[in-house]
Amino acid sequence: MDRVEILKTYKIYIGGAFPRTESGRHYTPLNSKGDPLGNLCLSSRKDVRNAVVAARKAFGSWSERSAFNRGQIIYRIAEMLEGRKEQFISELQKQGSSKAEAEKEVILAIDRIVYYAGWCDKYNQVLSAVNPVSSAHFNFSTYESMGVIGVLAPQATSLIGLVSLLIPAICSGNTAVLIASEKLPLCAITFAEVLNSSDVPGGVVNILTGTLDELAPGLAAHMDVNAFISEPLGSMEIGIAQAAVDNLKRKFSYEADWSSEKSQGLYYISDCLELKTTWHPIENIGGSTSSY
C-alpha cells in the first residue's frame, strides 16, 4: 500500500510567524486542469492591518542595518532558495508549469535575488550626489529607505514576479506587505518559509494570500503604507490609485516580462527610496570674506 502523503498546510506570514488568517476562512484555487492546489488562507482586511503593523515595527531596525549586512541577508535568501529548489519546482509544476519552465523560473529567481543582494551597498554610491551649491555650504543628496511598501505580486507567475518586485523593495531597508498571486499562491508561502530560515528579521516581509478584490484596496488605502507597487491593474487601476491618494502614497505599476533577464535593475530599487538633501555650512578660516 502506498504511503499516505503528509499534505502541506499553507498559512500566511506575519511578523515572522505563520498564523492562519484571523478570519478563519480559506479558499481552494484550482490549476488549469481543475485540480485543487490546496486550502489557502482567505486573508481579511484585518490580516492586512496586522501585517502593516508588523512591517512598521520591523522598519526601524531593518532600515538602520548596514547596507553590507542587508546584502548578506539577501544573499542568504538565495542560498536557502537554492537548497529548496526542488520544492519550488514541484509547486510550480503543480500550478501548471512544465518541468523545464519551472526549473528556469526557480533558477532565475535565485539569480535575481543574488543580483539585488549585490546592489544593497552600491545603489547609494551610484545614485547619490554632492551638489556644488554657490554658497559656503556642503550639500549632498543620498537615498533613504521609504518605509512600508505594499506589494501586489504579479498574477501570472507564482515565484519570479513576486521576487522581482519584493526583493528590490526590501534590499534598501524597506519592509513589505505582499499579497500573493491569487490563483498561483503556493510559492509565495513556501518563499515565506525560505525567508523565515534565512536571517530576514520577522516583519520585514509579510505575505498574505486571498483575493485581490478584498485585500488590495485596503492595502492601497492604508495610511501607514508609504508606497504601493504592482503590475498594471486593469479595471482595478483607478480605484487603487485613488485609494492611495489620502496619504500620498508613492505608486508604481510595472509592465514587464518577469521571466526576462532584463526585468531587473537599479531603478526598481530607487523607486522605493526617498531622496534626502542635507546642507551644512563650511567655515572658511583665515582669508577674510569681508567685502571691505
Partner: peptide, 14 residues
C-alpha cells in the same frame, strides 16, 4: 559661533 551664519547676518546689515 558659526562663521558662515555670521557672514550671512553681516551681509544683511550691508
Amino acid at each position: 559661533i558659526d562663521k558662515v551664519g555670521v557672514e550671512e547676518r553681516v551681509a544683511r546689515f550691508q
